[in-house]
Structure formats: structure tokens, C-alpha cells
Design a protein around this nucleic acid. Sequence first.
DNA 1: ATTGTTATATAACAAATGTTATAGAAAGAA
DNA 2: TTCTTTCTATAACATTTGTTATATAACAAT
Lengths: 191, 191
Amino acid sequence: MPPIPKFQRETIIEVTYQLIKEEGLERVNARRIAKELGCSVQPIFHNFSTMEDLIHEVNTKIYAKYKEYIMRGQNSEMPYKQIGLSYIQFAVDYPEFFKILFMKETMLDAENFMMADVLGDHIIKEGQKLTGLSYEEQKKFHIKVWVFTHGIACLVATKTIRFSKEEIDKLLGSTVLEMLEGYKKSREEKK
Amino acid sequence: MPPIPKFQRETIIEVTYQLIKEEGLERVNARRIAKELGCSVQPIFHNFSTMEDLIHEVNTKIYAKYKEYIMRGQNSEMPYKQIGLSYIQFAVDYPEFFKILFMKETMLDAENFMMADVLGDHIIKEGQKLTGLSYEEQKKFHIKVWVFTHGIACLVATKTIRFSKEEIDKLLGSTVLEMLEGYKKSREEKK
DNA sequence: ATTGTTATATAACAAATGTTATAGAAAGAA
DNA sequence: TTCTTTCTATAACATTTGTTATATAACAAT
């Protein structure tokens, strides 16, 4: 029988996850992970065929953390607003993860950027409760809300702007309401 | 007297600039540049003490291109709108440059992200012409406009969303007007 | 205790990349 | 022409990083 493994798959993933969180993807490599684990690189390559493999599994964990952020607050009083705030808070708490998920060419498409992948129609319907718009109109309006939300998130992820939680809440909340006000008015004028 | 240099400083900068434009900063290195120039790496290190040095000079050129984008259209009928459209168009035409300038920790601060560095008070005053807000109010409103503009630009730079020029014009134009409408209304209600 | 299996450490290899030592070639000055 | 300067190519060195070969050691079944 073989010896009991000292470095489990999960442990390696967890340490890599933490390293990326603290220092970003570019600064992570096999020896760096091994050092953190207090071992050689062998346990890593014994558990994962390549580094790419390991990073891929870590990305799954990162995506799960993101989902967790988005999902929580869905039973609050203002679920639609909370999704946006959570998206931004994820960028505040995990800027390196946000960059990986939403500031690269990979892993992205328009659907998932607007969260349709995570929440499906739910997000549109929650939006409707706030705005009172029709489903199709809400879909259009949601794009605008989401672009704005994404803008804030990118800015905090790159540390270009450092907003407090309160400032973010106020900026997002007031702007969305103002956008809605104007959206409704311009809709009326079209008729 | 020395032989006439075949590879001028400017040529090296230009080739590196083009390489970054086409393939991004990460894929550029001394041998890659040399290959493009059809020479060895010597001309590079003869003209620049380090690669960092060269990249720094290329970044200056990149920033100049950005400024050129922002400046043109300043004698159009709608200068304030044009600045935003130019910012986004820069992200469309030079996504790799946009990432370097505005999607990294380096080289950025809140001032320059809102273009105060390039245009100073001018941008606020041009905004006032459109919105009719006071200088202080316009400064607050400008943040919202700029976050939205930056959001679109980040999305096109990462190719998450591919908008046509017309779509961008419409999305930015309509949203800013709607935001303004709502901003003015909420301002009235405060009184 | 012996043995088979496999986790781990050591050390090395290979590729990529920044950088530099060396020597030859070019071009005008003498 | 010869000399001096300096541009360029070749080749090498150093470092970083992914990956692997080898040997050792742990562990449980026998």
C-alpha cells in the first residue's frame, strides 16, 4: 500500500486559489505554490497533469465564489439592486478574481456578463418588479444598468477609484433610478 | 566614424507599438521585435538600456494616440458627447492599448480616468453646455456619465460585447440623456 | 519482516526571455 | 590607405518556469 498522501488535490487547489487572490494569476507558478505548501513541485504534478489543469480547477472554484456572491441577497427586500451591489462587492473583495472572470477575452460572452447564465430570466423579472417595465423593455433597460454596474466594478477592481460600500450603494442606486426616470420619460415621448 | 545605423530608435519603437497593437503586451519580447525588424536583438539593446525602457517609450506613444483620439472631435457640434464616443472608439480600434492604459493598476488615477488630465476644466464646461448644470453639479454628474462610458469601453476592449458604431452612439447618447433627465428630476424633488 | 505500491524530494532538462561578451563590418576622418 | 568609432550578428549566460526522471521512503497486505 502507498503512503498516505500529505498534499491532497483540494489542498493544492485551495492554496493556489489563495495565492491568486492575494497576488494575481501572473505571479503564480508551480514553485510558488510548492513553497506555500512547504513541499516540492512533485505533489502538484502528481495530482494535476499540467499547471493549466490546476488553474482550470481553481477557476471553477473562483466562479463558484462569484456565484455565491450573486446568489446571496436574493432573498433580501431589493433583489435586483442587490445583484448589482454583489457584483461590485465581488470586485472589491476579490479584484484578481474579477479580472480573471470579467476583464479578459476568455470565459465571457454577453449573456453571462449580464448574469443571464447565473440567474436566467429571474434577473429580468426581478428588474421588472422595480421598474414596472414590460419584459422586452426591461431586457433593454437591463443592458444599461449592467453596463454602469460593470463600469464601477472594473474601476474598483483596478483600484482606479476606491469607493466605500456606502458610496457604491448611493452611486449605483441613484443612477439606476435616474436612468429609469429618464427611460420612462423618453418612452412616453416616443408615443 | 561609425556606420550608419540601420535600425533607428524610432523604428524600433514603431515596430513594438504595432506588435503590441496586434498581439498585446504579453506576447511581445526582444526576439519577437527583432524578428519583425529582420535583425538580431542587438539594435534593441543598443538603443534601449532595458526592455522596460523600450516599453516605457512605447507607452508614451500609446498615450499620445489616445490623446489624439480624445482631442479630435473637439471642434464638432457636440464636443462633450464626442469625447465619450472617442474614448469608446479608442477601445474599439486599439483594445490592447486601452487595456494597458485603463484596465491595469498602473498609470491610472481617478483624475485621468475622467479625462481631467487631458482636458482639464474644459470637459466639465462642455458638459455644462449640454446639461445646463452648475459647475459643481456637473462634476458629480460627469462621474456617472464617465462610469457608463468606461463600462462600454471595457466591454468592447475585452470583446465581451461587439457593438457597431451606431449602436454605441445610440446606447451612450440615449442613456446619458435619460440619466440627465432623471438627475434633474431628483434634484428638483430634493428641494 | 518482506514486499508491492505510490507519494515525495532531489535534481535535472527544456523552453522562453532578458541581457551581455565578443568579434566583425561599415563609414567617414586622418 | 589606415584608423577610429560604433552598429550589428552570433553566441552565450542567467533566470524563470513547466515538466519529468530517479531514487527514497511510507504504508499496509502478506
